[in-house]
Design a binder for these strands. Structure first.
Length: 490
RNA sequence: GGCGACGUGGCCAAGUGGUUAAGGCAACGGUCUGCAAAACCGUUAUUCAUCGGUUCGACUCCGAUCGUCGCCUCCA
């Protein structure tokens, strides 16, 4: 197959053509969550971005092996478990379950493999032993550290060098380390903590080693893509490279994909700043597709500023696409004529025909979902024009053209998890959401509408408008149709 | 302090050496309507933070300046 996808590789700082090691098969590893709390929308972005990447690669015909780990043992988990009078294992498992509830609810596919750190400790011990043997790591007082100076490529991912880092080091000096930047591979056990036997005594793995060990186990020593949030570039991914390449003497990941943060008021959303919203906070008020639409409204490397306004805009935008879908669906029941001249303008038809190519071009260019969404809107507009130009009894082939184009758009939108619902049902659901804040009963509204209808029949426009304004004040918008009046929340 | 990213219309956001600078939201105008709403259609940046430079030509490349954010400590 032909490789056409270009990806921004953090390692080179450039867009590069994705050329899988094994033709047609992409192997990708993504750093998952540390499981000790509910996921926030930054985690949602991460999951959705890589879900989109994998879906697109598959859409393009690649076989994809996708590995994403769970960090289920670490300082924060141990501390939180102690606070909650439970075990680290129980706590981690509980929040893995919650992770699934959230991410399944957002429509993310499960990865091929989802290894947990605690299930791969032997593989980590093996890798550490190899590093010790090769003089790249050293035991000290029950811990084992990686000697950063032993790896000449240290800093190549994050664009740093050891001297600069040393000068600006904010790391507390640890007497046991040969270099303050050396990082721990194995931590000596402390009383009451989970521990595993090892050649260096009982203890538990450091954070970075799990990804090196698990990626090697599931994907091999060299694989195609490694991904994660921008905050993982240093030190986490830098250290993974040091560990893996230090032990294997082979390139680790060929390409590195790092997505931007979700921000609030232009500040990074994070646990330590306390400015985070959980996925379920957001799900209380917004449909999962709205959240997906929002996430994909900007290219994955840019920051994404979260706000109520931004979500509302996303909702309005997606609604527009669903309206088009509903209009196209309604066309299917219209009587058609078999012969005649196409009513669809040639330029409009050209736009409809080129939808797929334009979409693929945008997505091939470093997964430019923002541009892809623009193409959906452009197509939506073309479909609107086509629909409007149809006569009472449209030509069967015109109906076919419009239906096919809409089907194609739906199929392409699957990559972003959009337009997957029945339009009529989806649009109705948005209306019900808006109805949540209304302070007047349905019966009262119906009564008012009947009153107004009487006024309208009597052509008492003043009274008719007064009733309408009154309801509008209460958040009810009236829509007069040919022979009925419907209402919907504002 | 070191390293990195970014600065495009009221807001969000594509484009990234060369015909008219995508698209969304909002606003405004039109169709429709008793008037509206909804929907649909249309309009809205001689200009891309600022100042220099390279070039026949730059929003796009280079340099400087200003501003915003991030990493350097756990973090998606």
């Amino acid at each position: 197959m032909e490789n056409t996808i270009r990806i921004h590789n953090t390692l080179s700082g450039k867009k590069e053509l994705l050329i899988p090691i094994e033709p047609g098969h992409v192997k990708i590893y993504v750093c998952g969550i540390t499981s000790y709390d509910y996921c926030h929308i930054g985690h949602a972005r991460s999951t959705l971005v890589f879900d989109m990447v994998v879906k697109y690669l598959r859409h393009r015909g690649y076989n994809v092996t996708f590995v994403r780990n769970f960090t289920d043992i670490d300082d924060k988990i141990i501390a939180r478990a102690a606070e909650q009078h439970t075990t680290p294992h129980e706590l981690a498992e509980r929040f893995i379950k919650e992770f699934y509830t959230d991410m399944d609810g957002l429509g993310a596919d499960r990865p091929t493999f989802e290894p947990r750190a605690t299930e791969n400790v032997q593989e980590m011990i093996q890798l550490i032993a190899e590093l010790v043997e090769q003089g790249k790591a050293y035991p000290a007082g029950g811990d084992v550290y990686y000697a950063v100076e032993s790896f000449s490529g240290y800093g190549k991912l994050s664009g740093r060098n050891l001297e600069d880092m040393r000068a600006g080091a904010r790391i507390a000096v640890n007497e046991q380390k040969k270099n303050p930047l050396d990082f721990v591979l194995w931590k000596q056990t402390k009383p009451g903590e989970p521990s595993w036997e090892s050649p260096w005594g009982p203890g538990r793995p450091g954070w970075h080693i799990e990804c090196s060990a698990m990626s090697r186990k599931y994907l091999g020593e060299t694989f195609d893509i490694h991904g994660g949030g921008q905050d993982l570039i240093f030190p986490h991914h830098e250290n993974e490279i040091a560990q893996s390449e230090g032990a294997n003497h082979k390139p680790f990941a060929n390409m590195w994909i790092h997505h931007g943060f979700v921000t609030i008021k232009d500040e990074k959303m994070s646990k330590s700043l306390g400015n985070f919203l959980t996925i379920r906070d957001v799900r209380e008020h917004y449909d999962p597709e709205v959240l997906r639409f929002f996430v994909f409204s900007t290219q994955y490397r840019n920051p994404l500023d979260f706000s109520e306004t931004a979500l509302k805009e996303a909702s309005s935008g997606l609604e527009r696409l669903y309206h088009t879908a509903a209009d196209c669906d309604a066309l299917a029941s219209r009587p058609v004529s078999k012969t005649g001249k196409s009513a669809i303008n040639d330029k409009v038809w050209q736009r409809m025909k080129t939808l797929e190519n334009r979409f693929l071009e945008a997505m091939d260019n470093d997964f430019n979902t923002a541009q892809a969404q623009g193409i959906f809107f452009d197509t939506s507009k073309s479909l609107g024009k086509a629909l409007r130009s149809l006569p009472e009894t449209p030509l069967a082939s015109d109906v076919q053209k419009i239906g096919d184009c809409m089907d194609k758009m739906r199929k392409l939108a699957t990559v972003m998890g959009l337009l997957q619902e029945d339009p009529a049902i989806w649009l109705k659901a948005r209306e019900s959401e808006r109805a949540a804040g209304i302070k007047i009963s349905k019966e009262e509204i119906e009564t008012k509408i009947k009153e107004r209808l009487a006024a309208r029949i009597a052509k008492d426009w003043a009274k008719s408008d007064e009733i309408r304004d009154h309801l509008l004040h209460l958040g009810i918008v009236l829509k007069d149709n040919a022979n009925s009046t419907t209402w919907s929340p504002k």
